[in-house]
């Protein structure tokens, strides 16, 4: 009994230490990355499940790139370069409004890559970006790669792509098309991450919906809610800027069919 009380006391101290450490971290002006599930969090059954879900999308992406690069020789450098550009875009340090700019967050970029390259190739690019981040930035993980590809790659790319296309069908301006793609892809990415984390409490009798809602709520209330809108605005500005300076790029990528004024 005495040992258990002692262990409890140690646990409480550990918790207080972690809380203080994290507060110091949050207010130290570092970048806040929250959408990638880190190594070791997903248990084996979920890690395998998310890999199994992601593999078909990746396979279709690989097939599309392989087929296209044989037809158009400049396709591989184009995809690689735009992939690098989206990776760099996803490193933009956006100040977090909720913390009065004391910490920064970063955009996902999958909405933009889905607009530029199409959803399946975007899933592949997201997968490669996540692998590079997991290995060289300790951001995400190898066993959680499937889960991260599902939330960021699949949900982010497809939702962003369809949001862009629907906005185009509704004859919205290019800015609003980009805006909705950015916002919706971000929202779905965080929703995906929340679902993946929420599913972890089912095994031990927890409420999946409550946990998912709470995690999603925390994401939205801290940095990511505003970030969704900010990313949407930035993607909108990017589309308009590229269209004004180099409309041929959007024509080349099949984003615009004709060069009308913005």
């Amino acid at each position: 009994m005495g040992f258990f009380v002692f262990k409890e006391r140690i646990l409480k101290r550990v918790l207080v230490f972690i809380a203080v450490f994290l507060l110091v971290f949050i207010f130290s002006g570092k970048a806040a990355y929250a959408m990638h599930i880190t190594e070791g969090i997903l248990p084996s059954e979920w890690a395998i499940t998310w890999f199994a879900v992601s593999v078909p999308f990746l396979a279709i992406g690989i097939y599309k790139v392989k087929r296209k690069k044989r037809e158009v020789h400049s396709y591989l450098p184009l995809v690689g370069m735009l992939g690098a550009a989206v990776f760099v875009f996803s490193c933009f340090p956006i100040p977090v409004v909720a913390l009065n700019g004391m910490a920064t967050s970063h955009p996902c970029g999958t909405g933009m890559s889905a607009i530029l390259l199409g959803p399946f190739v975007s899933v592949l690019i997201a997968g490669i970006a996540l692998l590079i981040q997991a290995l060289f930035l300790a951001h995400g993980g190898l066993t959680t790669l499937g889960g991260n590809i599902f939330s960021m790659g699949i949900l982010g790319s497809f939702s962003g792509f369809f949001a862009f296309r629907i906005a185009q069908r509704c004859r919205m301006s290019l800015f609003w098309c980009g805006f909705f793609a950015g916002v919706i892809s971000d929202l779905f990415t965080y929703l995906g991450t929340s679902i993946e984390l929420g599913l972890l409490v089912i095994k031990n009798g927890g409420s999946f919906f409550k946990a998912t809602a709470e995690i999603f709520g925390v994401f939205m209330m801290t940095s990511q809610g505003v970030l969704c809108i900010v990313e949407g605005v930035i993607v909108g500005f990017i589309m308009v800027f590229v269209y004004k300076r180099r409309p041929d790029i959007l024509l080349l990528l099949g984003i615009k069919k004709n060069a009308k004024p913005v």
Binding site: P77, G80, M81, A85, I94, L116, F237, I238, R245, I249
Partner: peptide
């Protein structure tokens, strides 16, 4: 940031053209 992202895309495409 919008201008920065736009420049990034334009430069990436230009570089891709040169590389290919």
């Amino acid at each position: 940031f919008g201008v920065l992202g736009g420049m990034l895309i334009i430069r990436a495409v230009e570089r891709a053209e040169r590389t290919s």
